[in-house]
Nucleic acid binder design. Structure first.
Lengths: 262, 262
DNA sequence: GTGCGCTGTGAAAATTTGGTGAACGTAGGC
DNA sequence: GCCTACGTTCACCAAATTTTCACAGCGCAC
């Protein structure tokens, strides 16, 4: 799962040993971590654009609860993990009700803290809006996964679900040759029965729709005895000129480009 | 998202003392709780329309981890809280990475479990009500989240709660295609059971009310085999394409024919 | 050049999916 | 208790899509 953005974490704790070990761990995980002193006002936390905060309210003394409450109120989207020694059930319950996301007792293993931070953020992200995956552009073709549609020149190819999934699988690894079994496995989700021609049939449907909208390009290539490969290729000039000018009622099927064979 | 419905919780544990006390507590909180035996397959959990699950994997013996993994994979939106005795850091980390939301050691106070369940669910539910300053206007439709109402030309569509929430979910991400499962998850709050047609039925009701008040626009589009997409579209004056419905061999799209309309 | 697969095609058959109308069960108001 | 509004579920139908088939065309080996 691609982590689209680094996790930004702040730690408020004066247990230098704990902080050091934790830092080492988060750093190797590629997170951006900063250790801050206790008194930092919530406004500055906002400016830090944090995803999560690990803190030991003990360093704040009396102000601990007050601070916790302020932070939870002003940054409701921030993941807050309390990590402290000695606590009662009542305290933990109070904190969780206040908006704290998790509470771990010290001493604790940094790995567990990391895992809990991840769990908190995972939950928060899923709740949030799905980030638009950028559309994939190949040749004249544009694939928008968020719409389950593919476009050429702004108009939809009007693909069915299977057609779209097939296109997606092939195009996601453009340039690579897939065996039929592999394609089937990824699109249909289970093993292909011997003699099943579904892949061929759908490749044909896809080719047909692609050719209709993008006649000057060749997208799906056949590897005889092997399978298929997706690779956008503009057709050579000789054939392209016929296309460019008038709408050729039905242009003859262009000559097959020679295929590389095993 | 307003919390207008009871929290539905299932407990898998054979510690009758713990379960009893917990039940008492959740019941007084107005939750709907059910204690289930260990072997229940994930599919049945789906049918129970749960928001959260508290379980002690110990009752499942060897299968514990396997089960946890299955549940987390099949019901990613379900809040999962593990509550068990004796555990190592490695186990806790593994579980959290697997998708578990929280891990509490036994013995523990039911009140804390309740608080942790609430914290987990809070994470999932919040992230919605951003300062909905202005009403959302789409086509002839105006959605006022603050009033739980939608208007066309100043008059209310008179939507029921479910209808409004469905509209809100779809319209908030206008242009994006939602799969039924995703819609169900966001409107109903739990996983959709296989074969449930509720989404379809409510889409129909919504369409009906929209069409009654705003006949010149099309709002909800069907993506066959996938789901629905909200996108206000003025109907093109009339059905101009009724002229020649004959399908000449391969036609390039005269106008844009991008969407499958039903 | 010939023959044996493997792949392209077109269309019928089978299956799935979505639209609809209505029955059913429930909760709350009167 | 009776009635109304609403959410849920069902059954049936039509439409859309997927699967299956038989056959034609090609590619490659001999």
């Amino acid at each position: 799962m691609p982590e689209l953005q680094k996790i930004r974490l702040a730690v408020i704790d004066d247990d230098s040993g704990f902080v050091t070990v934790l830092s080492k761990r988060t750093e190797s995980a590629g997170w951006q971590q900063r250790t801050v002193s206790g008194g930092i006002p919530p406004e500055e936390l906002v400016a830090m654009k944090l995803n999560a905060l690990v803190l030991d309210p003990a360093v704040l003394g009396e102000e601990g609860w007050n601070y916790l409450e302020q932070v939870c109120r002003k940054l409701p989207e921030l993941g807050v993990i309390v990590c402290t020694t000695r606590s009662t059930v009542a305290q933990r319950v109070r904190a969780l009700r206040l908006g704290v996301d998790d509470w771990v007792g010290k001493p604790c293993h940094p790995e567990e803290v990391v895992a809990r931070v991840e769990a908190v953020l995972r939950r928060r992200r899923r709740a949030g809006p799905v980030p638009d995956a950028g559309p994939l552009v190949l040749g004249e073709l544009e694939i928008r996964a968020d719409r389950f549609e593919a476009f050429v020149a702004g108009t939809s190819l009007d693909l069915t679900r299977r057609e779209f999934e097939l296109l997606q699988v092939l195009a996601d690894s453009a340039g690579r040759v897939f065996e039929r079994e592999a394609i089937y496995q990824r699109v249909w989700g289970y093993a292909m029965a011997h003699g099943d021609r579904s892949v061929d049939v759908f490749v044909r449907k896809l080719r047909h729709k692609l050719e209709k909208r993008s006649p000057a390009w060749r997208y799906i290539h056949t590897h005889f005895g092997v399978g298929y490969r997706f690779d956008p290729e503009p057709l050579g000039g000789d054939e392209a000129e016929a296309v460019s000018s008038a709408e050729p009622a039905d242009d003859l099927p262009p000559v097959h480009k020679s295929l590389t064979l095993k």
